[in-house]
Design a protein around this nucleic acid. Sequence first.
RNA 1: GGCCCUGUAGCUCAAUUGGUUAGAGUAUCGGACUGUCGAUCCGAGGGUUGCGGGUUCAAGUCCCGUCGGGGUCGCCA
Length: 589
Amino acid sequence: MLRSHNCGELRKSNVGETVQLCGWVDSYRDHGGVVFIDLRDRYGKTQVVFRPEEGSEVHIEGRHLRSEDVIQVAGEVVPRTEKDVNPKMVTGEIDVRVRELKVFSKSKTPPFEPRTQDLPNEELRLKYRFIDLRREELRKAMILRHKLTKLARDYFDEQGFLDIETPILGKSTPEGARDYLVPSRVHEGEFYALPQSPQIFKQILMVAGYDRYIQIAKCFRDEDLRADRQPEFTQIDLEMSFVEQDDVLSMVEGLLAVWMKELRGVDLQLPLPRLSHAEAMERFGTDKPDLRFGMEIVEITDLVADSDFGVFKNVVGSGGRVRGLNVKGVGDRYSRRVLDNDMKNLVGEHGAKGLAYFKVVGGKLESSIAKFFNEEQQKAIVERMQGEDGDLLLYVADQPDVTSAALAALRNHLGKDLELYDPQEMAIAWILEFPLVTWNEDEQRWDAEHHMFCNPFEEDLEYFVTDPSKIRARSYDLVCNGYEGASGSIRIHDTKIQQQVFDLLKIDPEEAEERFGFLLEALRYGAPPHGGVALGLDRWVMLFSMYDNIRDVIAFPKTQKASDLLSGAPSEVDPKQLRDLHIKLDLPK
RNA sequence: GGCCCUGUAGCUCAAUUGGUUAGAGUAUCGGACUGUCGAUCCGAGGGUUGCGGGUUCAAGUCCCGUCGGGGUCGCCA
């Protein structure tokens, strides 16, 4: 070993010991005589001291050390005088007095230093990821990620789950997200696809009798990125046989309880709150509500249908709804400019054509459009909204889905802007009973909401013929602070029901065989009732470490355009490689 | 694909309404200093204002295009 201790462990009790430390020069302070170096490794920092009387050569070399040089020092642990103790460092009670110095490697002047307060822009951080990863914040995130993963593996192991790997090179199934394709050299003109999830394989494992499966699985989706979406990401993927929905939910809840206990020291209240999809849409306008604060959506369609306000009246007349939010006590906080521009634009991004607003004054409404509502209507609105003097009431009038999307966005914006919640809090809940299918207006057909192997409620089977939009699925999402943290369902194991679903989705038998016949075939050889769920590991690390993007919890993330600025991927390849694969490029001009 | 933000010294930022030689902190280099811990003090070097075009007597600043980064809508079963 090149070191006897790491840089985070020496204490007063080590005084007098001769030690060797290795690490990176975090900072240096040269007083001409005495030179101080903060030596850093993954475990912490220790101050090492060069004094002229320890030998001129070592001292001179010490004076030339610069940020990020990698060195080994040998010397004696000495106590600091009381006034020199640094209470900000756990190793602040001691120094290592350097007798010998070895410089393993000098560093070029780094583009930024790991100890910097002013973070450089993300482009630079990604290009020099090896330096960014030296920062304490990122190191903490990596450690937290390790802990979440380790706790999950241990938990599922205790519950009898088997960790089984599934292929990375798989078959393209053109449902859902765009596939990342990998050309086959051996099979000319044919392609593998990287898995969007191990979905089909884990169901086949259930058929094969491995009734509790778990995998920390890399998944790939070639879609546009977001703050919480990377082209490759990690799922904690599991599947269980001979279970009902509640069994899967409580299994996941058990994991969350472990995480909360071990990482936050909190006893998670179980079972977690459960909301139906319909209820979530009604109260929060979204299937992934941020439940850290209230400010729920309230409907006033019935109260304004007869008002003199043309906008509301017309919307109601054409089947629309008028819904809004009561923003408590901020009647004067937002200027008309903010309301008419910023907030209107925000709801506009979600299709709303306008934003109506009132201030509650003396139990009535005040605003430029208040005159269109008679006293009775005003009082009814205030009462419905539970309005008190000084409240701000905001309304969107439009088709139902537009009011939901617009008000959900507005609610999230206001919650953050008004700091309506404790950022430390984690509000976790299940969203249940998603619709099995949604109508695709462009294609004029029904699309699976979750996926096509998702089991409908038996009591809803009659709606297959009468009104497919009413069929509820045995599917469930776990939401936390407005993020989808897990998603799963009980699967279909009955071939008759599976056929009904295919019929509804207009997937003809031949097509079904071609796309995923191997799963359908497996299901014909004795399929147990089964279901499962996948947790987005990156998002949970992000939530537990309170970042607002997942790049900060991934060691080597990609940019919004899916490139890796560190390695330069993607990149052109040698023409010979393309020839081997029989690929000719046909690029846009 | 749409919309919004952004790009000035290695880094973080400034630069009045379009107007003189584009500044500051930090980093780097040189010097001073024997107890600092964001060390301090003195000095020096460091710029194709992302790139290309245009308007103008004059462009970091205005216009068009383009590239990179970020946010978001579409998209993501």
